[in-house]
Structure formats: C-alpha cells, structure tokens
C-alpha cells in the first residue's frame, strides 16, 4: 500500500467536519489531495508518524462556489485552481487569477488542487499567498462554536500560516481602480520550484503610483510585503525609469541571493519586468 492506514471520514456538512476535526486524534484535513496525499507518502517512506484520521471536505457543498455580494468577492475554500483559471465569476480579477493559476504545476493537478489547500498546506512557495496579500484578502475560518472568524491574509502568513481552524473561504474587495500584475520565475530549468514570485497591486493616480502593495515570495519563506519598494513606488511616477530603478529600492532581507549572482540578477529583472508589465496596461 502507498499509504499507512488511517480512518477516513467524509462529512457532508461543515458543522460535522468541525465537530470531527475537534474531537478526533491525529487528524488531518483533505481538500484536493495534491499536497496531503504526497505528504503522507513521504512520511511513510521516511518512517515518520502518519495521521490516524483524515477528514475529506470534498462532499461539503458549503465550501464550494464563487459569489459576489456588494463588491465583495467570496471564493469558497474548495474552489479548484482550474476553476480559478477559467472562472468569469471572478469578475475584474479573472485575468490575474488566470495569470497565477496558469503556471501552477500541470492540468490534472490544477483540476484537483484547491485554493484552500494552496493556502493551508504550509509550503512557503505556493502561488496564491502573494496574490491575496496584494489584494488585501481576508481568510475566513470556522471555529468550534461555528462562528466565522476573519483574518487578514498578511497577518496569517506572518504567523507562519498556521491555524487550528478550518478555512472556509477567501474574500476580496472589488475595486475597478486596482491594477495588478504577477510574475514568477523558476529556480532553475531542471526544477519546478519558484525562485521568485511577485505580485504588485497599485492605483495609478495622475500617472503616479499610489496605495501600492508589493507581495513577494522568494521560495524560502512565506510571502511578505516589500515595504521599501512600496514606499519608493508610492513616491514615483509611472515610467520606465521607475521600473529600471526599482531594484535599488528593495527590502534585501526578502531576497536571499546568498552571494549567488544569477539569483540576484533574476530578482532584479523579475521586479523590473513586473513593473513594466503593470505599467503597460495589464488592468483587471
């Protein structure tokens, strides 16, 4: 067998899932399976402890779907990456979600992987954190008392992306003035792990940047904001010069080049190219 034995639970209601999650020992949540199942295989191979109970959220309809209410977009946790790639229900954010989803692994994995899993799996190099930080999203968790708790996504990743509760949905505020761009570059041609993913959101006001958020994922720690670059951009105008100078205004602690010329070069080039793309009109 590929996996060590465990007891499998498939609740149909969120309430049931919460109750099981809080009562069962050695329990893990199963969303799409693209993270968890591989992880379980690895743990077994290494002879490490594996969970006794697995709760599959697959049957819970309350965790499926994308909706919009009064400029607030609500993406339920089990929305697959494929759906994020092609859904028009994401309205003005459809393009940017497509850009982020496009490079995620391969088609069958995109069909299976969920946004919830992508956020909760605690791999620091996953794709959606940077985007959601840039869009100032909120993550909603359900507690034992079945009350929903909202946590700003930036805060969640500052606290090592951990939660004792089940993620139910992600909410975003629609804003037609938001301009967003995302780029990622691979670590090397022979591996599929990103070296750097950057998501920049801004509002152009009189040809100047404003309310800029730069969310950066360097593949070795959770996505964070580069406030140094944000400050520089918020004082700069929309021009090629700004893009070219951007690499001199980085929070260097976020870009671990480890005396690697290539990495350092690619960090600078990626930021510059993201800004160029942003400025040449990639609007939502």
């Amino acid at each position: 067998m590929l996996l060590n034995p465990f007891k499998f639970h498939s609740p149909q209601k969120l309430e049931e899932a919460v109750s099981l999650y809080n009562s069962l020992p050695g329990v893990r949540i199963l969303a799409g399976g693209t993270f968890l199942i591989n992880n379980l295989k690895l743990l077994k191979k290494k002879g490490l402890k594996t969970p006794e109970n697995i709760i599959s959220l697959r049957r819970i309809d309350e965790l499926k779907g994308i909706s919009c209410h009064k400029k607030e977009l609500s993406i339920k946790a089990l929305t697959s990456v494929s759906e994020l790639y092609s859904s028009l229900s994401l309205l003005e954010y459809s393009q940017i979600f497509k850009a982020v989803s496009r490079n995620l692994a391969t088609t069958p994995i995109r069909n299976m992987a969920t946004i919830g899993g992508n956020l909760m799996c605690r791999y620091c190099w996953t794709e959606f954190p940077a985007l959601l930080i840039a869009l100032k999203a909120n993550l909603h968790f359900i507690a034992t008392d079945l009350k929903e708790e909202a946590v700003p996504v930036e805060e969640f990743f500052k606290n090592s992306a951990k939660s004792e509760k089940i993620l139910t949905r992600v909410t975003l505020t629609l804003d037609p003035q938001n301009c967003i761009c995302y780029q990622s570059v691979r670590k090397s041609s022979s591996v599929d792990i990103p070296l750097l993913a950057v998501c920049i959101k801004t509002k152009f006001s009189k040809k100047r940047f404003s309310e800029t958020i730069v969310a950066v994922n360097n593949g070795t720690s959770f996505a964070r904001r580069d406030s140094v670059l944000e400050n520089f951009l918020n004082q700069s105008e929309c021009s090629i010069k700004t893009a070219d100078e951007s690499s001199q205004h980085l929070d260097t602690s976020l870009y671990d080049a480890s005396r690697d010329d290539y990495k350092e070069h690619m960090f600078r080039v990626t930021i510059k190219n993201t800004l160029r793309e942003l400025m040449t009109g990639r609007h939502p």
Binding site: L2, S10, G33, I37, S56, S82, P108, I109, M112
Partner: peptide
C-alpha cells in the same frame, strides 16, 4: 475532469 489517481483516495 482529468485527475491523478495516485493522489486520489478511493473512498473520497
């Protein structure tokens, strides 16, 4: 939809 059976639990 195309999915990977090595990552899918039969019971799920």
């Amino acid at each position: 939809k195309a999915v990977l059976s090595c990552l899918t639990l039969a019971c799920a």
